[in-house]
């Protein structure tokens, strides 16, 4: 597998160096049909990377390869919208826009402690720890359109029913979900469980996974829970039976929800909105993040967090379909 991957990389590089000049703009390019894995990179030292892959190609550090400079320290989140990739780079205090098809750099703006991204219309939204705000940037130029104060350390976001929902209160309360009108940026705060972590749309309804507090013995932990948005607010659906594990990464195949049953070392759990909290797992533990796409589950294993991780693709019944080598601390896939 390693040899074939290496050959594939060499072949890809050879192709790239044999006169094929990917367009800097336009509908397609060398990376158009490649999937992209965002790797955080080593914390504090080193750089985040993007691994590009398809069935017979794996290109490590594709961004640096195309642009000649590193992505930045701790790549946090990546979003594809309108043939552009947007990447937040947490420790480097940057948001970058990249051509999705060529991985050519388009623009970079400095923004302190950016976290997650969402897009709507001609804007992208960037949650931000520094000011506990959501910044609104122009997709095309990165220019700041507005900033929306939402409170305590906003994290993951989702656009649902033409509204932007933001998890607020990453590691300390009050824990809220901010509902933002994407036209006038008015904010409504809703109650939710402790530590809103991730959103998923299951059966056309919005759910939020709350991980529960992890207090390291200083005070009691609290339980994970899943809450549902009803139009006027969120209500608790299920609660984990104990505080031993803190569930993260709620995703959906449209019908069912899937999540990792523990932070840093989770196994995939399948859950349907009509069910109680599920404890049986589809896979072994080891997951750092979970993504879902086209009926498959993308399980990102960061291994020991000090060497390259891997992406494992599972069916929704837990069958391992594919394993792809990734970079250091892989956390997200773009398809």
């Amino acid at each position: 597998m390693r040899i074939s991957s290496s050959l594939a990389i060499i072949a890809a590089l050879a192709l790239a160096s044999c006169g094929k000049t990917p367009p800097t703009t336009g509908p397609s390019g060398f990376y158009t049909d490649l999937h992209l894995i965002l790797n955080e990179g080593p914390f504090g030292t080193g750089t985040g990377t993007i691994t590009a892959y398809n069935a017979d190609t794996v290109i490590e550090s594709a961004f640096a390869l195309e642009n000649g400079f590193p992505l930045g320290n701790v790549a946090q989140h990546m979003l594809e919208s309108d043939s552009l990739l947007f990447v937040t780079i947490n420790n480097s205090n940057r948001v970058r826009a990249i051509n999705r098809n060529t991985l050519q750099h388009k623009w970079t703006v400095d923004l302190e402690q950016p976290r997650y991204l969402a897009a709507h219309g001609s804007n992208i939204f960037v949650s931000n720890w520094k000011d506990s705000a959501v910044y609104v940037l122009s997709k095309e130029t990165g220019a700041q359109v507005d900033s929306i104060y939402v409170g305590n350390f906003p994290e993951q976001m989702i656009v649902f029913d033409n509204k932007l929902f933001v998890g607020v209160g990453t590691y300390e309360g009050p824990y809220k979900v901010a509902e933002i009108n994407v036209n006038n940026f008015e904010v409504t705060l809703h109650n939710t469980g402790d530590v809103p972590n991730s959103f998923a749309v299951i059966g056309n309804e919005l759910f939020v996974m709350n991980s529960g507090e992890q207090n390291w013995g200083v005070s009691p932990d609290t339980k994970s829970s899943i809450w549902k948005f009803s139009g006027s607010g969120f209500s608790e659906q299920v609660v984990a039976p104990n505080v031993n594990k803190h569930a993260i990464s709620l995703v959906s195949d449209g019908t069912n929800g899937y999540f990792l049953n523990n932070s840093y070392d989770g196994a995939i759990v399948k859950w349907a909105p009509s069910q109680n909290w599920q404890t049986s797992t589809l896979t072994l533990p080891g997951g750092y993040q979970l993504n879902a796409h086209a009926g498959n589950l993308f399980f990102l294993d960061a291994k020991d967090y000090a060497s390259n991780g891997e992406l494992r693709v599972y069916s929704t019944s837990g069958d391992l379909l594919e394993t792809i080598p990734a970079g250091v601390i892989p956390r997200q896939v773009i398809y």
């Binding site: 990179g41 080593p42 030292t45 080193g46 750089t47 990377t49 490590e60 550090s61 291994k303 020991d304 000090a306 060497s307 390259n308 970079g327 250091v328």
Partner: peptide, 10 residues
């Protein structure tokens, strides 16, 4: 090497 698997990136 700075990565435990001795990957080139490190």
């Amino acid at each position: 090497h700075t990565l435990r698997d001795n990957a080139r990136a490190g």
